[in-house]
Lab assay of single mutants.
Amino acid sequence: ELSWTAEAEKMLGKVPFFVRKKVRKNTDNYAREIGEPVVTADVFRKAKEHLG
């Protein structure tokens, strides 16, 4: 699991709890794919757009 900024964690907190774990995993995987060592708010937004 990658490191997350406080802002990205806050955004994740707005995701319904029953899918939060999956969203975190998918976002981590997306960040790795694009070469990001940390999940930022920008990476979170891009993952959301990319993953739907």
Rank of each mutant, 00 (worst) to 15 (best):
P37L: 13
F18T: 11
F17I: 12
F18L: 12
V43K: 03
T5P: 01
T27G: 02
V15I: 11
K25M: 14
E1Q: 13
A6D: 13
P37C: 11
V43Y: 01
L51T: 10
G52W: 08
L12N: 00
E33T: 10
D42Y: 07
L51D: 08
R45E: 08
K25T: 12
F17Y: 11
E49R: 13
D28L: 05
A41I: 08
R45W: 09
K14F: 09
S3V: 14
K46M: 09
K21C: 09
N26P: 01
E7H: 05
G52I: 13
K25Y: 12
H50I: 09
T40G: 03
I34C: 07
A31C: 06
V23M: 09
R45Q: 11
K46C: 05
E49G: 11
V23S: 03
F18M: 11
R24Q: 06
R20F: 03
T5F: 01
I34W: 10
I34N: 12
L51Q: 10
A47L: 05
G35N: 08
K25H: 13
R45D: 06
G35K: 06
V15G: 02
F44R: 01
V43S: 02
A31W: 01
A41W: 04
A47K: 02
E9T: 09
G35D: 05
V43I: 10
V15E: 10
A31S: 05
R45L: 15
L51R: 14
T40C: 03
F18V: 11
I34T: 10
K48R: 13
I34L: 10
E49F: 10
E1Y: 11
E1F: 11
N29E: 12
T27P: 00
V23P: 00
V43A: 03
F17R: 10
Y30C: 02
N26F: 14
V19A: 15
T40W: 01
L2G: 04
A47T: 04
K21N: 13
D28W: 03
R32C: 06
R32H: 08
L2C: 05
N29W: 10
D28Q: 07
K22P: 04
K10S: 11
E9H: 06
F44V: 04
E7C: 05
K25R: 13
S3L: 15
Y30W: 07
V19H: 14
E36N: 04
V39Q: 00
K46G: 07
E7R: 06
V39C: 02
E49C: 07
